[in-house]
């Protein structure tokens, strides 16, 4: 097995008496899509936040490309190649689609200390932004104010901004939410292609998408990973059926 791009080793986090993460060990291999599923309240968001750097685990480590990043901030992790998309869009809503994408490219350049020239006229940033927007299918909405986008389009823009970072690993929190059938298919196709550039840790409720895309699936229940394996393994696993997929066949 090759070295994982992203890894958590024995992460635990408690909020008072609530144990939100229990000794979570999980890894993301090059070229794969690793889906993280689990019922509501299983602690998926808490886990993602600890990997991305918004929350500090009580115990355990987060390893990104061989480096222990547990003590680093979100921004520092992003600079080391971790790109995240949000379930509830975190975008500059008053800005245009292009401005949001250019912001991503600016973050990737690591040099925001430019005070004089117009950001929209920086060819390097603009090109990276337009390429990313074309890949997610937002080329026609470049000049649209982000607040005027549909929920699905915001999801696409989230992915585009993540693309501009040229990351080593993606963490995507429900990229299919609100997309509709056609959009969902497009996004599935895009993620399918993306895994070759950087592996994806995918949190998703759309089971069709998860089963179509995932190389491996981990199931999180009450903060604990109860199973990790291929799509077929997970489908057959009796513990998973009981906890998550329900009784129906």
């Amino acid at each position: 097995m090759t070295d994982p791009v992203l890894q958590t080793i024995g992460i635990s986090k408690a909020f008072g008496a609530l144990q939100a993460s229990k000794n979570v060990t999980l890894d993301l291999q090059p070229g794969e899509i690793h889906a993280l599923i689990g019922p509501n309240g299983a602690g998926k968001s808490t886990l993602i936040q600890q990997i991305a750097g918004n929350l500090r685990p009580d115990d355990g480590q987060v390893i990104l490309a061989g480096e222990n990043v547990t003590g680093l901030t979100t921004a520092q992790r992003a600079r080391r190649g971790l790109a995240r998309t949000f379930q509830i869009s975190a975008l500059a809503m008053e800005d245009t689609v292009l401005q949001n994408a250019i912001l991503g490219a600016l973050g990737a350049s690591g040099k925001p200390w430019a005070f004089f020239g117009a950001a929209l006229k920086r060819q390097d940033l603009r090109q990276a932004a337009e390429t990313a927007l074309a890949r997610v299918g937002l080329s026609d909405h470049v000049a649209t104010r982000t607040a005027e986008l549909s929920h699905g389009q915001r999801r696409q823009l989230e992915v585009a901004v993540a693309l501009t970072l040229k990351p080593k690993a993606f963490i995507m929190d429900e990229p299919m939410a609100g997309l509709g059938t056609e959009g969902s298919q497009q996004m599935t196709q895009l993620l399918h292609e993306l895994r070759q550039e950087a592996p994806i840790l995918l949190v998703e409720h759309d089971m069709d998408a998860v089963f179509a895309l995932a190389d491996r699936i981990s199931v999180l229940v009450y903060g604990e990973i109860i199973a990790t394996g291929s799509v077929d393994d997970i489908r057959r696993n009796p513990k998973v059926r009981e906890a998550y997929l329900g009784e129906e066949d």
């Binding site: 991305a52 918004n54 901030t73 979100t74 921004a75 520092q76 992003a78 600079r79 790109a83 995240r84 949000f86 975190a90 975008l91 500059a92 809503m93 008053e94 800005d95 949001n100 912001l103 991503g104 600016l106 973050g107 990737a108 690591g110 925001p112 901004v161 501009t164 970072l165």
Partner: peptide, 12 residues
Amino acid sequence: QSATRVETIGLS
């Protein structure tokens, strides 16, 4: 507009 966004792209 969104501090989270700016942190997520790697800026402080």
